[in-house]
Amino acid sequence: MKKILLLTLLLLSIKATAYNHIASLNLCTDQLLLNWVAPEKIASVTWLSASDQYRKAPLPEHIHLNRGRAEELLRLDPDLVLVGQYGAQRAARRLRELGFNVVDIPDAYSLEQLSQQLQALENVLGENPPLEKQKALLEKMLAQPQRPAAASALILSANNITYGSGMLEHQLLELAGFENLAAADGTEQLRRVSLEEVIAAQPDLLVLYGGEKDFAIAHLAERHPVLRHYFDRDRVFTLPSELSFCPALVAADVLQQLKEKRKSLAAKQ
């Protein structure tokens, strides 16, 4: 049933999207296109989207993998080129000069920016049901009243980095009813957090950030025995890595999962 619904949504999007030869010079817009637009309408995505680390949707064989260079896209003659806020700016400028239809899609580091990102994408792609569904979910999230924090949480990301009040991850934690201890400590963006600080802070929930499947020195802290009791007592939540490079895909799902986690923690207490 779910598959039929998705297929219907996809078919609807095929009808609605005016462009038939879209190229992307940004990893996030790659993923959004691959997930929400019919494959035959995508001409090129970045090479990063072919790597296992970032691929979150099937990659059709005909799609050209670009390395962010203008000359690669010239011969593909795309009718729309999507670029991010920061990467491949030189290629974007060159393509604009050559008369291509290049559209900037802003990056998103908060729920508000996420909404703007989806709006920008909708403006250019036109009617697209999966996109609209995601946008509606985000608007609903933004309209939710701030609930009082029922439990505390602390993010421990790669290289002992934690996330403060200015970050999307913090917003999701707060909306799910968690107090982000890093933000309570005055952190606004990112800061280093040692294992000592994690132990001293004693968060109810330890939030990890992707990458736990493969070996990495950056994730050594998560494997330290002092955190074992968090795993034993199921007080760990792992944010998907997509949240860092393309939150539009997963933000709503993550919020829902965090809410469920808070409920399960409350039930245990």
Partner: peptide
């Protein structure tokens, strides 16, 4: 293969005792 892998290698070459235990 990625910036992350490169960072891992560079950090390894700089040495560290952080997050080490018994």
């Amino acid at each position: 293969p990625s910036m992350f892998a490169m960072q891992e290698i560079v950090f390894w070459l700089l040495g560290s005792l952080a997050n080490r235990g018994w």
